[in-house]
Structures are given as structure tokens and as C-alpha cells.
């Protein structure tokens, strides 16, 4: 018997295994991209209901970035917003019969955490330069350099584990209950899983913003970014 945590290849392209999570991710990418093209194909100054709804999504993401990062949302909107949308849709993809959410697989969550890790470094260097970014590890004093370095790795790992644990556990519980109780019994648990998926998408995006803001604000004068929350205490 194989572990439910293992990613089984549906087929191979040469030596490369193609798993269900990758296929579902591709499908999600296709749906989101196609939907975006359709939505933004006829944007008007006087918006339709659909356009207004999607503008509300963008405006909400911008508002969250402003409130959380105390920065202009332009450079971070695409990354943070896409993280939220992808995790949200991936978590809720379990609504489609026969489809398992990609975020229930360790590789997907690890990929997301890895991207956040890289994004923190990228935005930190872009904001304050390499020296400025490295100087953030010496905050509040050089004694903290080892701890801050370890923290940058562990918080990335915590992102991975948090998302993977919540989603995977939900899928496991539903699968177990379904196998034991019957067809309609796991429906409340599925609803709870949807709520958990939405919350986890929000938490992942918020934490990504906090980590990035910590790297960016530490590389800039304090007066430029007033009232910035301390990302290390927040996480």
C-alpha cells in the first residue's frame, strides 16, 4: 500500500513524472488565465457587474497590501494576489469530483513556500540593495544574525507545513469519514474544509506580505514606512 502523502505519477514524459497535482495545477492555470482574458477583454470605465466584482477583488488585495505592508501595492500586487487566488482555487478544487487539491501535496506547498522565500530575497534586495538586505539580518543587533538567518528558513518551512497540514488533514478526514460513514455524511466536513481552505489562502498571503514587508522596510529609512508591524513578532 502506498502512502497517501506520496505523489504518484499519472504518466511519464521520458524520465519526468507528471503527477495529478501538476495536471490539476495546469488546469487551474488554464482556467484562471482564460478567465482573466475573458474578464479583461472588454473593460470599460462604466463597469458591468462582473467587472465590478473583479475590480473589487483587485481593490481588496491592494487594500490588504496597504494595510499590512504599509507600501504602495503596485510591485507586490501580482505576486501576493496570485498566491491568494491560486491557493484559494486549489483548495476549493476539491469541490470537483475526482479532483484532489494540489495544495494537499507537499511539493505544491513547498513550491509556494520556496517562491515566498525567493520573493522575500528579491524584493528585499530590490528595495535596499544586497547590503541593505543582508543588514536586515543584523536587526536589532548583530548577535541576532544567526537566529534571524535560521528564522528566515524556519518561517518558510512553517509556511509549507501550515498549508500542507491544514489542507492535507482536511482531505484525509473527509476520505476517512467517507470510507466509514457513507456518501452524504462528510458534507459538513467538506464545508468546513472549504472554510479552512479560504482561511489558509488568506493566512498564506498575509504571511507572505509580512515577510516581504519586513525585508523591504528594513532596507529603507523608518520614516518612509510609518507604523510598520514587526514581521518577526507577527509570524
Amino acid at each position: 500500500m502506498t502512502s497517501p502523502l506520496a505523489s504518484l505519477a499519472l504518466f511519464h514524459v521520458g524520465p519526468v513524472p507528471i503527477t495529478a497535482a501538476v495536471i490539476v495545477t495546469w488546469a487551474i492555470m488554464a482556467v484562471l488565465t482564460l478567465g482573466s482574458v475573458l474578464v479583461t477583454r472588454r473593460l470599460t470605465l462604466v463597469p458591468s457587474r462582473t467587472q465590478a466584482a473583479f475590480e473589487l477583488v483587485v481593490d481588496t488585495v491592494d487594500g490588504q497590501i496597504r494595510d499590512t505592508m504599509q507600501l504602495k501595492p503596485g510591485p507586490y500586487r501580482a505576486f501576493v494576489g496570485t498566491l491568494f487566488v491560486f491557493i484559494f482555487v486549489a483548495n476549493w478544487s476539491s469541490l470537483v469530483p475526482g479532483v484532489g487539491p494540489p495544495t494537499a501535496k507537499l511539493e505544491t506547498d513547498a513550491a509556494l513556500a520556496l517562491l515566498v522565500f525567493v520573493a522575500v530575497i528579491w524584493f528585499g534586495i530590490r528595495a535596499g540593495g544586497l547590503r541593505g538586505y543582508l543588514a536586515t539580518f543584523a536587526s536589532p543587533n548583530p548577535v541576532m544574525i544567526p537566529l534571524n538567518f535560521i528564522e528566515s528558513l524556519t518561517r518558510t518551512f512553517s509556511l509549507l507545513v501550515r498549508l500542507f497540514g491544514n489542507v492535507m488533514s482536511g482531505v484525509f478526514v473527509i476520505g476517512i469519514v467517507l470510507s466509514l460513514a457513507g456518501f452524504l455524511v462528510p458534507i459538513p466536513l467538506m464545508a468546513l474544509d472549504l472554510l479552512t481552505g479560504a482561511v489558509q489562502a488568506y493566512i498564506f498571503a498575509i504571511l507572505a506580505m509580512v515577510f516581504i514587508a519586513g525585508a523591504v522596510s528594513d532596507g529603507k529609512p523608518a520614516c518612509a514606512i510609518p507604523d510598520l508591524p514587526n514581521p518577526r513578532t507577527t509570524s
Binding site: M29, S36, L83, F86, A111
Partner: peptide, 20 residues
């Protein structure tokens, strides 16, 4: 799979930035 998903999400970031 980790590599695929990393690239997939990165590409998705670019696609949604471009189209949404």
C-alpha cells in the same frame, strides 16, 4: 513535481499579472 509546481506558480504569477 516540486520543480514543476514552482515553475507553474511563477508562470501563473506572470500570466495573471499580464492578463488580470
Amino acid at each position: 513535481t516540486l520543480g514543476f509546481q514552482t515553475v507553474n506558480v511563477a508562470v501563473l504569477v506572470w500570466l495573471l499579472q499580464r492578463f488580470f
